[in-house]
């Protein structure tokens, strides 16, 4: 019964497709059932999908610590990226990241499902590309172009023209991000230079506390803490770090705007732009005071 039901569904879809093709030959058929299994594609899909087109997003999309679109994501059932659960949703297209759930992706492909994979974004110029890629996959090219234009205008608006202040990203366990990353681009766009890049770090890596202290940054960027305890986050209370923070400016950001190559980076740019202007204001009052 199940098989014949599927079959009639497919025949129906074919007939519908044929009808649509006859009516409007220029428009390719848009997939009707889309599932996203990666935090970043989740957000792109939610921005781009037509109503009812997106069936499910990953469980990380509703995680306030990592996702920039928690509220929107609550409207969709969550998946954990397992091939089995995704397959049972009968998707036409699955959106995945190139680094996530390799085995699930391979398995889904071997089951004949189309999987569109997006690499992580390392620069702002990747963001329009990714919007267009997902737009194409969803048959929503026009919407993608709208979002690209909006994004590029906002990006230009949020550019901060102040001499670069030296900022260090300092995350739990002493993790930081150097040159060639989205975070580095966010800093450079908002009037900062990246201390980790200055120390020769390319990509992500550890920055020992000693070297952070010796670098004497103007601004420390940290992430908001997770619930529960860990030594990794206890590092944020280290007296040496507190002393550096007392001298420098300090801003706590949520990861949402920093991880994914989506227009959500605009949120991070707003926060950092404000932090940079505050820093400039503080420095000016200090100068006035010393005069």
């Amino acid at each position: 019964m199940r098989v014949s039901a599927r079959l009639s569904e497919q025949v129906g879809a074919l007939l519908l497709a044929a009808a649509l093709a006859a009516a409007a030959p220029a428009v390719a058929e848009a997939p009707r059932r889309v599932v996203s299994i990666n935090l970043c594609t989740d957000q792109l899909a939610m921005m781009l999908a037509a109503p009812g087109q997106l069936l499910s997003v990953s469980h990380l999309a509703t995680e306030p610590q990592t996702s920039a679109m928690v509220e929107e994501a609550r409207a969709y059932p969550a998946n954990r990226g397992q091939a089995e659960e995704v397959f049972l949703m009968h998707p036409d297209v699955v959106l995945a990241g190139t680094f996530t759930a390799r085995q699930s992706v391979d398995l889904l492909r071997s089951l004949g499902i189309e999987v569109v994979e997006l690499p992580p974004a390392n620069a702002f110029s990747d963001i329009p590309d990714q919007l267009r890629t997902v737009g194409r996959a969803l048959g929503r090219e026009a919407r993608a172009e709208e979002l690209v234009a909006e994004f590029e205008a906002d990006l230009a608006r949020l550019k901060v023209d102040l001499p670069p202040a030296r900022a260090a990203m300092y995350y739990p366990r002493g993790y930081t991000t150097g040159s060639g990353t989205l975070a580095d681009a966010i800093l450079r766009h908002t009037g900062f230079s990246n201390v980790a890049a200055e120390l020769g770090l390319d990509g992500g890596g550890d920055l020992p506390l000693e070297r952070l202290v010796m670098a004497q940054p103007d601004m420390i960027v940290t992430s908001s803490p997770y619930p529960g305890a860990s030594r990794a986050e206890e590092l944020m209370d280290h007296p040496a770090l507190q002393a550096v923070r007392a001298e420098a400016g300090s801003v706590e950001v949520s990861d949402g705007g920093w991880i994914c190559g989506t227009p959500a980076v605009l949120q991070a740019l707003e926060v950092m732009g404000e932090a940079r202007r505050n820093l400039a204001a503080v420095r000016l009052t200090e100068l006035d005071g010393s005069r």
Binding site: P172, R173, G174, L209, Y226, P227, G228, A229, S230, R231, A232, E233, L235, H238
Partner: peptide, 19 residues
């Protein structure tokens, strides 16, 4: 609930004086 906690099993088994 803390995503870093599980990585710290190694610290409790092997010990460290870092930071």
């Amino acid at each position: 609930p803390n995503p870093f906690a599980a990585m710290e099993i190694v610290f409790w088994m092997m010990g460290s004086l870092a930071d």
